[in-house]
């Protein structure tokens, strides 16, 4: 379990990092928290010729709100640690789903190194944070030497451990639009052990109108398909509902048309089953939190 020989680059500027990616393309890998990359290199499942360590690049550790009061956005730069995000007051206030999902990633020592953006860029179909980002209508900020672009999370994840990132590109930040009004969210998952990657997880964001009915809803799943996915069929069924019983019914279609990747922790069928169970739970909790902010557990 020793990596193949590689070169290590520790750029001090973003442009330097982007130059390296432009030069080496597919032969280079960005190193963020290293909590997935190093393991893969040790197992020689990936053997990059050059490792581009972005941890010393200034400015990538931004965590904060920007934009005017009308539409503010929470931004997390590429070296913001999962632990920092989880404990941040701003994340708790403006994107509690990210904090709740983040707290379920691994164990504190892993989160102290692993980055939010690294988890998004890694695009593990079972990981919590990509699903949370989807449910939050998050955006992925991408840079290359030549250009800068913003990709909606739903367009970013293209398959298992695959994204729409080009070899010369890196993610510099993720943006989460801050919700307004009466909103609740929840992240629920089944893990084999505390801190493991979920077998399946469900993220839900529910906005409730003045009439007490669901006016906005997002449901995203991990472990339920080849990539983290939104579940539009459930969302459509839930819109306008005001009774938690409707959520369970709506969740029955959560796994329709999905292709979960089976593993020793759960067959495709079991993952579909969990998708239904967890979707219902996430929706019920999110709704309860939207309608009564003190509610914290599954109704």
């Amino acid at each position: 379990m020793k990596p193949a020989p590689f070169e290590y680059a520790g750029p001090r500027e973003l442009d330097e990092a982007l130059d390296l990616l432009a030069e080496h393309g597919d032969d280079a890998r960005v190193l963020a928290g290293g909590q997935s990359l190093v393991r893969l290199m040790n197992a020689r499942q990936v053997s990059p010729a050059v490792v581009v360590d972005i941890n010393r690049v200034p400015g990538l550790d931004t965590l904060g709100l920007f934009g005017d009061n009308g539409s503010s956005t929470l931004r997390l730069g590429a070296t913001v640690r999962q632990r920092t995000s989880e404990l941040s007051d701003e994340v708790a206030a403006h994107a509690p789903l990210l904090a709740e999902a983040g707290a379920q990633v691994a164990h504190a020592p892993v989160r102290a190194r692993g980055t939010v953006v690294g988890s998004v860029a890694f695009a593990d179909p079972s990981a919590e944070l990509p699903a949370a980002l989807l449910a939050l209508d998050g955006l992925v900020k991408v840079r290359s030497r030549a250009a800068e672009r913003t990709v909606a999370a739903d367009d970013f994840f293209t398959g298992p451990f695959r994204t729409s990132l080009a070899p010369d590109e890196m993610v510099v930040a993720v943006d989460v639009p801050v919700a307004t009004g009466r909103t609740g969210s929840a992240f629920v998952e089944l893990t084999r052990r505390h801190g493991d990657l979920p077998v399946c997880g469900a993220a839900a964001v529910v906005g409730v109108g003045d009439d007490g009915r669901v006016s906005h809803v997002r449901v995203a799943l991990c472990g339920a398909d080849e990539r983290p996915v939104r579940v539009p069929a459930v969302e459509a069924a839930v819109l306008g509902a005001d009774d938690p019983a409707a959520f369970t019914e709506a969740a029955a279609v959560a796994a329709d048309g999905t292709s979960p990747i089976p593993s020793c922790h759960g067959s495709a069928d079991f993952r579909r089953h969990l998708a239904r169970v967890l979707t219902a739970r996430a929706l019920r909790t999110a709704f309860a939190r939207a309608t009564s902010p003190k509610e914290t557990t599954d109704a």
Partner: peptide, 16 residues
């Protein structure tokens, strides 16, 4: 072998 590492072959941790 579908359980080649301790990610697949699970041992209890203190949390369990």
């Amino acid at each position: 072998l579908e359980t080649p590492t301790l990610r697949e072959y699970l041992l209890p941790s203190m949390h369990e």
